[in-house]
């Protein structure tokens, strides 16, 4: 469990170019959470993920890990780096080893695991991201774009982090690649990584993958709760430069036209179920 209390972070502190990226954010990540983090560019979501991953200089406010409060963030950051794996946007741009195998093994090696353990981790991670054993000896630079992305994610997954954060993992993928990646995350969650955070500005991706979500705007955490609650506040989201899935706009329109639908619908399947019920019910 990771708990942020009233965390504020300022870039270029004490300089004319100072910019507050996070402003009094409190957030609790419970074990087993599968959280969507939403916000447009510059809303502070990247800063938040980097603080959770222990990668930034100390912020103001307090951070506790597994119920332990840390007086200074630097000690907490060491704990966080052990616990949290962060997959940056376009992670394929960080590949560097001569073979796929060695690139995936980089993290586990840094964790000082034994050779056998490393081998097990690499193979397991590759399997989970759908990278076949025949690719392990290839150079990562010879793979296709989608494969590179998955190898890079495997590099973090192989460390078996308790908390896995992915920043826009589907950016630039085609619909098929995106679907494959999202179902891969669903399988990782709970089974391999206790907690998963999906950072995205695709509301459709959020709607179909996660149960709870947090919304960032101007460095503040403005919404946090079940996905259906968040998408039922469409006007507020739009005022923050965000969208709602097209389906929830259709549902809103149907409600306005007098259909007795619930506002808490945000997938095509659920909408079809409800409409079918109404029609067949003969109302």
């Amino acid at each position: 469990m990771i708990e942020l209390k009233n965390v504020t972070y300022t870039y270029n502190k004490n300089e004319p170019s100072a910019r507050v990226a996070l402003n009094g954010v409190s957030l609790t990540l419970d074990d087993g959470d599968f959280l969507g983090l939403i916000g447009h560019t510059g809303s502070g979501k990247s800063t938040l993920t980097q603080i959770v991953a222990g990668l930034l200089p100390p912020p103001e406010g307090s951070v506790s890990v597994d119920g332990r409060d840390y007086a200074d963030y630097k000690t907490a950051a060491r704990e966080l780096r052990k616990k949290v794996g962060l997959v940056f946007q376009y992670p394929e741009h960080q590949l560097f080893e001569e073979t796929v195998y060695r690139d995936i093994a980089f993290g586990p090696k840094n964790q000082k695991l034994t050779e056998d353990e490393i081998d097990g981790r690499v193979r397991e991670a590759a399997r989970r991201v759908n990278i076949g054993g025949d690719l392990l000896d290839k150079s990562p630079f010879d793979l296709s774009g989608g494969q590179k992305r998955r190898v890079a994610i495997a590099g973090v997954v192989a460390m078996k982090p308790e908390v896995l954060i992915l920043d826009e993992p589907t950016a630039g993928l085609d619909p098929e690649g995106r679907d494959e990646l999202l179902s891969m995350l669903e399988e990782l969650h709970g089974d391999w990584c206790k907690t998963v955070i999906l950072v995205s500005h695709s509301m459709e991706d959020i709607a179909r993958t996660v149960k709870t979500a947090a919304v960032m705007n101007n460095g503040r955490l403005v919404m946090n709760g079940p996905v259906e609650d968040i998408f039922s506040r469409g006007d507020e989201l739009r005022s923050m430069g965000l969208n709602t899935p097209q389906i929830s706009r259709i549902v809103d329109g149907l409600i306005a036209a007098g259909l007795p639908l619930s506002r808490r619908i945000f997938t095509v399947g659920a909408a079809a179920d409800e409409i079918e019920k109404i029609v067949r019910g003969g109302r």
Partner: peptide
């Protein structure tokens, strides 16, 4: 391997269910 807009998918799905 392509998507369709959710609007298109919804009416198509309703039709498929015999509506």
């Amino acid at each position: 391997g392509l998507d369709v807009p959710q609007a298109t998918e919804l009416v198509w799905e309703l039709k498929r269910r015999g509506l």
